[in-house]
């Protein structure tokens, strides 16, 4: 790997998105609108306090996955990815470059969501704020790689959008966001145990509702890091397949 090459790609993505003012505005406004609606639909603060960790994890996954998946797909469809693939840059440099480029914007959205949740919706939490941020960063890193990997299987934006009900929605239902995993049938519990959002929700709830530390939720954190590594490897391995098609 040549870090300067990954840095060049990351810088280019940042420059590109910054110059796309409408996208930049949407990156900021959309999470604010969504969080405002959620706040208004939960007038009982205790209910919102309970559901907030799951919402933070889900929205971080959803926004990061969507932003990366669509942006990366554009790289494929407009031929720029193929052009990079013909250059001396390695696949790992490409994945790392895209990861850091998109990560910055996914992080921006996540920071907006967390700060809005805590300071505007007035959600109470017990853990350390910086630990919530660290945990969220792990979630978005995994989601960015998942977006890159998933975009390999889509040939256009319509197909990419179909991955949302396939990848994001089942996790909302199966990973303890709406009802506890323990109340589901055994086979669904098993399915939930192989989905990243289960560990994201579990870990974030422990930090925010029980005041646990990152060390206490080490298992959830380790599984999330594991998912991130696996998605990165899959993204790098499948890169040529997508570019060549």
């Amino acid at each position: 790997m040549v870090p300067s090459q990954a840095f060049t790609i990351a810088t280019r993505i940042v420059n590109q998105l910054i110059r796309d003012r409408r996208t930049m505005a949407m990156i900021v406004i959309v999470p604010l609108v969504v969080m405002s609606l959620i706040g208004l639909s939960f007038p009982e603060s205790t209910v919102l306090d309970y559901i907030a960790p799951a919402l933070l994890a889900t929205l971080a996954l959803f926004f990061s996955f969507l932003l990366t998946g669509i942006s990366f797909l554009r790289e494929r469809s407009q031929g720029t990815l193929e052009r990079i693939m013909a250059s001396p840059v390695s696949r790992l440099d490409i994945v790392v470059g895209y990861l850091f480029g998109f990560f910055l914007f996914a992080l921006t959205q996540t920071i907006i969501i967390i700060l809005f949740t805590i300071y505007v919706l007035d959600v109470h939490y017990y853990g350390e704020l910086w630990q919530i941020f660290i945990f969220q960063i792990v979630i978005i890193t995994g989601a960015v790689n998942l977006g890159i990997f998933t975009s390999t299987f889509a040939r256009n934006e319509f197909q990419m959008v179909q991955f949302i009900p396939l990848i994001v929605v089942p996790q909302i239902f199966l990973c303890g966001v709406i009802w506890p995993v323990e109340q589901m049938p055994d086979y669904l519990q098993w399915l939930s145990s192989v989905l990243p959002l289960t560990y994201a929700v579990d870990g974030l709830r422990d930090i925010m509702l029980s005041g646990k530390s990152l060390l206490d939720v080490g298992l959830d954190l380790a599984v999330m890091v594991g998912f991130t590594v696996v998605f990165s490897i899959l993204a790098a391995v499948t890169l040529r397949r997508g570019a060549a098609s």
Partner: peptide
């Protein structure tokens, strides 16, 4: 990749970053 820096490639699509 070892020799790619000595090769130039102009694909059929413009393959440019339109925002830049």
């Amino acid at each position: 990749r070892r020799i790619a820096h000595r090769i130039g490639y102009m694909p059929q699509l413009h393959s440019l970053y339109s925002e830049l």
